[in-house]
Design a protein around this nucleic acid. Structure first.
Lengths: 357, 357
DNA sequence: CTGAAAGCGCTTACAG
DNA sequence: CTGAAAGCGCTTACAG
């Protein structure tokens, strides 16, 4: 019997109590931080617990405290490396708060019902929602059920549900400024999912930015945040007689695909024949083969905010929504022609900050 | 009160029972597939449940059945896209089996104790372990505690714990054959984590394969499965006076970094100046910028096997270990000089199958 | 500081 | 097919 773990399944607090010669309550108190228990008693209990290999049953504890210490993370697809990065940071952060991460992924991002049902059955303490199509439906259902929800990297019209995003509109406007300052005259946009708030904000910011300089024509194609669709969109765009000089792709994940199509199918040289800018500052954007000029989304800050909002709401029991809006930075690399002015170097990174001059 | 969900928290089976005019047992039976309940009674119950927005409390159910229907997935890092792909497939597959996925990630892959403690407290029904450093320790602790474990993409010396891997040794041998057939005479290897079984198998297969053709010298550098370390290793390798003509990088994730260093820091043309082969067939390996000649690891098959092994063990209660060893295919792309013979095209993919001739 | 007792929301023999 | 009752492993007033 290594460590006292026998065939009869996990050890219970009563078994520990018997061995330690105390009541079952005393065992429970020994494992509850801040409970009123004599140090001596506690020591006896911990010794017995160790001898038997006892660990409190979190399921039983949940039932009585009606706190599962589980946070559900809904992330339909992980194809875009941005999300695995977020997931890793969430794992770290939630563990630090002594919470656990129940992951919902790999489902066809259409109907929320099955997912919602599971969430409810496990009485999760909170939900982080990073799935575009599901957002509105699911978040309303959860809010109605009194479960704290934070939308991650997206918002809905309803103000009542908390969200963490970055300043997509401002970021996209900066990209427009950057491209105009670089001397480009014609522009294309390869969009993400058309009903996603992030896509809308990025497109609007881009349009506003260009309009401010008198450019009102943007050739738009749809990439749906997927590599395959982005490739198709790029093919359409580059086959055009009047191919735009600069293309803003709604995220880096697609921008990589767009650059591949430009180079390997159309023989274009980047940035001489075509400038490409993206969004997110995801891994491949930093690889020399791509060197994408892009706007960062600060994952650590976003995750920290999401967890903080959730913890606050769980602790207070109040459903007061918060909206955290973090800034992003335009990082200048090699995928687009650079303007003469406005680029500053900070910590070895080239940033576009025209206002700093 | 939308849907009957009021302030007093989730609805219980007793409340449904009262509304439906039946016993609480009857409500429970209505939600238990195969339980003995009259269709009429069940209809009444379901109606009442719907009116109140009732969902069975999975926590309470777990407590009594001592089945949590939760599978823990331990995956220290998600930097290598292979793992997010696995995770997505696991999400799909486990959901199909009506299981849930508790994810442990983002921890410093050193000491297993905190992770193990959490696993135990939640009484997970099974564990899928895809973290190199933790494997041996954690898997033994879990086995001792009677929790089914499957090692994913790794094995330990102890035969007692189940595992799912691909034929790394055979795959690496094929790569050696391929490179020799391509006319290469000098060889390098950039390794993964040196204590990982996968790395050991790949290296041994490679060495055996080369030795069979009379090549016994391999210049080895350590990449630890990380991009940063792989870059350093590549720099060392390429700075050598007698740089090898062909390099086998232990996985595609690192191979991308190695190719970047070769091209952008050493000005090498691939494959004219240098042949690179990898392993896994991960996303970027398929991008035209890399086109890595590599050996596949069939994610769907691996996940299917891992889940199947777990389900079997959970159902039987027996701790009989299984070892699933899936084959991989050598896919020929553009990162290495091709041999004249042995390449066949199947479903639009070029495979190296010299024996098929 | 401690123990006896109630109770969290279910499942499941048991008796009818 | 149905209901009353026991019990899963805990936490937490309550009384001492």
């Amino acid at each position: 019997m290594d460590g006292g773990v026998g065939k009869k399944g996990p050890v219970t607090s009563s078994q520990v109590a018997r061995l330690a010669g105390v009541s079952q309550s005393a065992v429970s108190r020994s494992f509850t931080p801040g409970a009123s228990i004599a140090p001596k008693t506690r020591a006896k209990v911990l010794e017995a617990a160790k001898a038997l290999g006892y660990r409190p049953n979190a399921i039983a504890r949940s039932l009585i405290t009606s706190r599962s210490r589980i946070i559900a993370v809904v992330m339909a697809y992980l194809e875009n490396l941005f999300y695995p990065d977020v997931l890793e940071e969430l794992g770290r952060r939630l563990a630090a708060e002594n919470y656990h991460l129940l992951l919902f992924t790999g489902f066809k991002d259409r109907d929320s019902d099955p997912v919602f049902d599971q969430l409810m059955q496990y009485r999760v303490d909170g939900i982080i929602l990073a799935s575009t199509s599901l957002s509105s439906e699911l978040s309303e259902e959860c809010a109605a059920a009194g479960i704290p929800v934070v939308l991650f990297n997206r918002t809905t019209e309803r103000d009542a549900v908390s969200s963490v995003t970055t300043q997509n509109r401002e970021g996209a406007r900066k990209l427009a400024d950057f491209l105009v300052a670089g001397g480009h005259k014609t522009f294309g946009y390869i969009s993400g999912l058309e009903n996603s708030s992030t896509n809308r904000d990025r497109f609007e910011g881009f349009r506003e930015g260009l309009a401010a300089h008198g450019f009102t024509d943007i050739i738009v194609r749809t990439g749906n945040y997927s590599r395959a669709d982005a490739e198709t969109a790029a093919r359409q765009l580059f086959a055009l007689e009047n191919r735009p000089e600069a293309v803003f792709v709604a995220n880096d994940h697609m921008a990589v695909a767009v650059m591949d199509v430009a180079r390997y199918e159309f023989g274009l040289t980047i940035p001489d024949d075509l400038s490409v800018v993206g969004y997110d500052d995801v891994g491949p954007a930093r690889w020399p083969a791509y060197g994408i000029t892009t706007v960062t989304q600060p994952i650590e800050g976003m995750v920290e905010a999401a967890v903080r909002i959730l913890m606050t709401q769980i602790a207070s029991g109040e459903m007061i929504s918060e909206h955290e809006l973090l800034p992003g930075e335009l990082i200048v690399r090699t995928s687009a022609i650079r303007p003469r002015n406005g680029i500053v170097t900070v910590d070895g990174q080239n940033l576009y900050r025209p206002e700093a001059q």
